[in-house]
Design a protein around this nucleic acid. Structure first.
Lengths: 107, 107
DNA sequence: CTTCAATATACCTTAACAGTTATATGCCGT
DNA sequence: ACGGCATATAACTGTTAAGGTATATTGAAG
């Protein structure tokens, strides 16, 4: 399970994903909507594709890009153990901190 | 809400966070457990700290680093709209795809 | 007050990556 | 067959970031 952190680290790619969340799109559409050059979009789509976050469907010269959820589900799974820290027992962390030696804070 | 993607993009930092999930740790502990040089650990901790993912508590020359959940909760929130794609109505996407023009797949 | 221990940081090198411009590829219409 | 459209990729450039080594800082202990 390779996590999509690197792929999602780029804000442009996240904006593209956000568009693709609504519906599949053409390269040109994305470039237009986000005001990006076409090669730039193609390159990012390549990265998204290599990371498994999108798939392509060819229609003549057009390419329909569509979101793929698996890596996002993996990310969700990665978050699980941390999520408990701020949901279930929020005070469990607090109690833990009280266990720590009591010394002046830095910064 | 600045997302912690860049910070978490580094696998070493993710391993460090994983350690800190159990309990707060000293720099030296982390370096030892993960077999990393001390400066390397300090540098990563700096990034984690700037990203709000950890806080420090000074105890003499020791520094106790402890996890901070807010950015992770932000990440969780970011995931929310996507999460629906693979939980609630998995077939909603499928239905959407059937709406698309039917052309040969690429790769 | 000197020395050692724990940590932070400066400096340097290298690698990766985003962006641009130019070009290639493939398909459609005429 | 030909010109144009949609997309991909190559080549190049600039920036950023990680890692290493060396050094600075601060507190403790003797």
């Amino acid at each position: 399970m390779s996590l999509p952190f690197d792929v999602l680290a780029d804000p442009t790619r996240r904006r593209m994903l956000e568009l693709l969340l609504e519906r599949p799109r053409l390269v040109g559409e994305i470039a237009h909507d986000l005001e990006l050059s076409q090669p730039r979009v193609s390159k990012h789509l390549r990265v998204l594709r290599d990371g498994g976050l999108v798939t392509v469907r060819a229609e003549a010269q057009r390419r329909w890009y569509q979101i793929r959820t698996e890596p996002l589900a993996d990310l969700d799974a990665w978050l699980a153990p941390y999520r408990r820290l701020w949901t279930e027992h929020l005070d469990q962390l607090e109690r833990h901190l009280e266990t720590m030696p009591d010394t002046p804070e830095e910064q």
